[in-house]
Amino acid sequence: MEINTTHYKRCDVVKSVGRIDSYTAPELEEVLKKLTDDGKYKIVLDLEEVDFMSSKGWWVLIETQKACKRYNRGELVLTGVQDRIRDSLNLVGMGGYFQLYDDVVSGVAHF
């Protein structure tokens, strides 16, 4: 899996490419945890090129969202989520914990 982070004035954009499962989720977790440990709580996660996400991946995002939203200091927003991944997210009922945007520009504009 490939993960790139771009720092902007108002937020950080993390772009993930590939498949997020129990094997690769720890890589994403490390990147996101480093951001929140560094005090960066306004994060856009670009999932446009992620074509598989298991519950392990969602759990990484839930934990990141908890860190971001604590004390109202920020938020993790998701962009470009593919339909089948969005369907499974909503099926489980975790969709309500995230703001979803079609593209990165809209995600960045959230902040």
């Binding site: 519950s55 939203k69 975790m94």
Partner: peptide
Amino acid sequence: PPDFSVALEDVTPRGAGLFL
């Protein structure tokens, strides 16, 4: 079964895989 009607800070991942 997982309960995703709770507040964010109370969410736990247990049971999500089986539910899926």
